[in-house]
């Protein structure tokens, strides 16, 4: 099981089996948006703020 801790609330996070680097996931405890920056070892950072030119 791939786990790490939330940088916002320190809760233990379990990454989904199909998790990918650069994927945005919510913390299962505090709901903060996090970016997966590494899978091995598992590591997340606070997701970047939405920038003005972001979109589809």
């Amino acid at each position: 099981m791939n786990t790490c801790s939330c940088p916002e609330c320190a809760a233990e996070l379990t990454l989904p089996d199909n998790a990918m680097e650069h994927e945005i996931i919510p913390c299962q405890d505090c709901g903060t948006e996090l970016e997966i920056v590494s899978l091995s070892p598992a590591r997340v950072e606070l997701a970047p703020e939405i920038e003005e030119d972001w979109g589809e």
């Binding site: 990918m20 650069h22 945005i24 972001w54």
Partner: peptide, 9 residues
Amino acid sequence: ITHVRPEEK
């Protein structure tokens, strides 16, 4: 990508 959205997956 900038980050991976559900669409990219």
